[in-house]
Amino acid sequence: MNLEGIDRTNAICGAFFILAGLIFGYQSLEVDLGTWLRIGPGGLPLVLSGLLVLMGAIILFQATRIAGEPVGRIAWRGVLFILVAPLVFGFTVRGLGFVGAVFVAALIASFASYRMSWWMAILLSAALALFSMAVFSYGLGLPFERFGPWLR
């Protein structure tokens, strides 16, 4: 097998599905599989995991035979900042409260773009926090603490 003839995208794809199948398969073995009459909680997941591994294997096999397009550009900066935003919202919503968490999450997400400047990001995040407080907290009456214990 020479590495040049391999379609990278599909090789990764096949490997991913095989891995996912193995993880789910392993986990379904931990619970009762059951019998034909009374299928247990692990029965269907195990069968599906097996099928997933099979599909992954077919994709992997095809990858060695047909060359495809490359994966293309990856938005690394976007991945870093955008995905961190909901995480930070989750970490801070109890401590900072609802308004603070919106501000921090929006601020972090702002830096996913190269075109955003500092002051613009702060301005936008503050505007969003105020807007959310007015609409969601006062308007719709979401039952979240506006300012949490960290700010007191």
Partner: peptide, 9 residues
């Protein structure tokens, strides 16, 4: 950033 804030909420 706006979408992310609203999605989180």
């Amino acid at each position: 950033p706006t979408i992310m804030a609203f999605c989180s909420i």
